[in-house]
Design a protein around this nucleic acid. Structure first.
Lengths: 339, 339
DNA sequence: ATCGCTGCATGCAACGTTGCAATACCCTTC
DNA sequence: GAAGGGTATTGCAACGTTGCATGCAGCGAT
């Protein structure tokens, strides 16, 4: 059994309340008393019981981070930054993996999220933003919520993301500028109500259009089941075996790009001479691929920082008084070796 | 405000206790009553308050996972598996990043770990296993603890790991078998009391010795500050600029290996013809590098499974009655394209 | 000497849950 | 019809913490 306020109080010869005051520092305590209590705290190794505190305060000091999968580099890099930044605010982060499972995301909002965590940062994947908004609105005690990437209809929920359309446009424009003409896209997700993929596709089209290109053939726009390397490799195979061989590929994620790059090597193509590649995410691996990957780098640090700030505003605001925010974080094109 | 047992009880016309019985399913409740209570629970959207439960039960249902850094692929892959497996046991995982900081690891054991989590799975990095054991023993309420990788002196703490010596031996032996003679090692960490690196170095030496090779020159054994790609690239540079150019490299982690591979490409070397590379960890990226990385694959799934099992045994056992276990999980050599 | 003020310390109650032990009820059996 | 046994339900207390209100002492001002 470990020591409680009561034990410290008894040993220091003061009341429980006074020890509590020393610990929290909220009320005035005489220097001498504080000193004595502090010593006893050290001596007994007193640690506040978080469960009791939470019960009393109605807060747990825990926030949730819901991402599709932790082993994906983009999310693990982001999660790392978030955990670190949360620590600075003395929050603890629990990570949930939704694995692209709509039910898992649903459960998180209605059940899991409901009582354990003070707030939730969620990067939706399988769940339609509309349903998500609906769920968030109808869940009994509203969990403070911040969306990563997906926009909720009519901006009813806080959201932090890069400007996906502009970023995809930048990537495509770069490929045009270096003289590419048959630019393929890898990463469309027509089967999902997935705003992110749609937005990136939109940026891709916008750039081509502005440059006076005809709308690219369907065969050049490759859908994927997920954003893993394997999917990128598969899509690349399809492209290389397709009717019109592209001279450039814009992949909607670095993992897809690396898979595509891998396949290009397998087929004996030179990158970027035979085929240029641009990715999206700026994951660590891309810096060390061969050749190093040209990519769109979202400011992940900003994403972590601002989504936590957003969540804090909502958690500490009385009665949802804060209006929903839609924060756009900066991105930049990082030109390395593949395009 | 959200509903409590009290609210459900009032509405269903039963006592608080009966509702509690329905929720927990522990005591006998008449079918009819159960039905009615269930309906009210649905209607009001009642969710148990975890803080109150924890306070009462003395358990939080939260376990900690302390790893050096989340953005490193090996750890994020492992963390993903652990989170998933923990979910199956209805545990919540909070992840702490120690960033190779000894103080952070110390704090975790004495302070953080003390009261928040029911148990802790820790992959020590900066902390000497001896000090770690010492700390664990002297901390007031002993936190159930499982070590990943590092062994505690005289096996006083539970531990899950691969046989690092044998695995490193396997990797080195493979390089010998394909005809390499000047085999370098990247990843030594003489400045840390880091058992893992020492063990891998030991396996490397053992394999060379058994094959009748002289002890490799110091210049072939490259120390690193950390296990990132950048460190691997740097070490590779040193090797290529060194007095004796190796024809093979055994890197103590895949990240190091990928950094080394990158540098080999930069210098215009052919892999594996000019220089062979073997890594350690079997991270996803290695499967898509060019060429795909030959590596030692620890059974990560087993690591997750068994460390949780171990922790469960300790948490649910009365009074530390369970003896400390030292579990060795299997590994295998995965031959791909770099060696 | 009395009053009010400030600084410090304290007691009570409540957060929502569950273990324990007791009670009320019904049905069977002699 | 009473005793016995089981089933169903309940009240009380406690887990450790903190908000609120209050108490107490000492001080300077009136």
């Amino acid at each position: 059994m470990s020591s409680r306020l009561k034990d410290v109080a008894a040993r220091a010869g003061v009341s429980v309340r006074t020890v509590s005051n020393v610990v929290s520092g909220s009320a005035t305590v005489a220097a001498e008393t504080r000193q004595r209590v502090q010593e006893v705290i050290e001596e007994l190794g007193y640690r506040p019981n978080l469960a009791a505190r939470s019960l009393r305060a109605g807060r747990t000091g825990i926030i949730g981070l819901a991402i599709p999968e932790l082993h994906s580099p983009y999310f693990s890099e982001l999660a790392g930054l978030l955990v670190e930044e949360a620590q600075r605010r003395s929050w603890t982060v629990v990570i949930d993996q939704t694995r692209g499972d709509a039910d898992a995301e649903r459960r998180l909002l209605t059940r899991g999220g409901g009582r354990v965590v003070d707030g939730l940062i969620i990067s939706p994947w399988a769940l339609d933003p509309a349903e998500l908004t609906e769920l968030a609105a109808t869940t009994a005690p509203a969990v403070p919520l911040v969306l990563l990437g997906e926009r909720s209809p009519r901006g009813t929920l806080d959201r932090v993301a890069v400007d996906n359309v502009a970023a995809a446009d930048d990537a495509t424009t770069h490929l045009l500028r270096i003289g590419r003409r048959r630019i393929a896209a890898i990463g469309l997700q027509p089967h999902l109500q997935n705003g992110t993929a749609q937005q990136r596709a939109q940026g891709y089209h916008r750039a081509l259009e502005r440059a006076g290109h005809p709308r690219p053939a369907e065969a050049l726009q490759r859908p994927v089941a997920a954003l893993h390397r394997a999917d990128g490799a598969r899509a690349m195979t399809e492209l290389l075996d397709g009717p019109e061989r592209p001279d450039a590929v814009f992949a909607f994620s670095d993992e897809l790009a690396l898979g595509a790059l891998h396949m290009a090597h397998q087929r004996g193509l030179r990158v970027p001479e035979d085929i240029a590649v641009v990715g999206f995410d700026d994951i660590e691996d891309g810096r060390y691929s061969h050749p190093p990957l040209t990519t769109i780098a979202p400011d992940k640090h900003q994403i972590a920082l601002r989504s936590l700030q957003c969540l804090a505003d909502r958690i500490y605001s009385p009665d949802n008084a804060v209006p929903a925010q839609d924060l756009t974080v900066p991105h930049r094109l990082v030109v390395r070796g593949t395009a």
